[in-house]
Amino acid sequence: MNNAVLRLTDVTRTHGAAPHEVLALRGVSFAAYPGELVAVMGPSGSGKSTLLTIAGGLDQPSSGEVSVEGVDLARLGQEGRARMRRTSIGYVFQGLNLIPALTATENVALPRELDGVAPRRARAEARRALEEVGILDLADRFPDNMSGGQQQRVAIARAVVGERRLILADEPTGALDTETGEGILQLLRARCDAGAAGVLVTHEARHAAWADRVVFLRDGVVVDETGTDRADVLTEPAAR
């Protein structure tokens, strides 16, 4: 399958040097396709967050290959990987996602403005993204004046603004109540249904239920990969 938005091939990430080195990921291969939401599950320290930072080009694998929309991130410099995050990759973290000194619109417009888009146009795009996640009325509010759920919606708007095709979400509902969390996952799901690929790191099975596939990590190794429907186990998503 060549149309994967995100593909990790035999990725290993080592921290520190021998004899104290720690293997965060060991030979992980994994892909996410357009329209697909993949959940990554595993206990603490299993390498979930490391996988996400490597997928977003914030960290570099010690070995292996990571490509986003067919572009090998290792071939890009720091500038190139930053450009990918402005145009192709969107991040959503567990909490403290937003820059407190910027309004909701400015937070969402941030990647576009950094990309050199004129402020007026960037804000217009940001307002459209905010409308998509249903909080256009909060456009001029600062994060301090928003609830956790509202902040996460702004974060999702920022992750999708500019038609980015890969959304990486690291426990985006971890700091939210159940109902608000469900709403956030619903948004993620909707964005993937609209054609983006999503990777959701979570340790709650009910959140993983929103995903098309679940990848299980333990000690940096993919120990299982399954569809949320047990019958789909190990079935290539494109074949379903």
């Binding site: 914030l58 930053a82 402005r86 991040y91 407190p100 990647p111 990309d115």
Partner: peptide, 16 residues
């Protein structure tokens, strides 16, 4: 620091 890290996650470069 976190603002800068979030900016980096949103596509900000070290120069930014």
């Amino acid at each position: 620091a976190r603002t800068l890290a979030l900016t980096a996650a949103a596509g900000g470069t070290p120069a930014q």
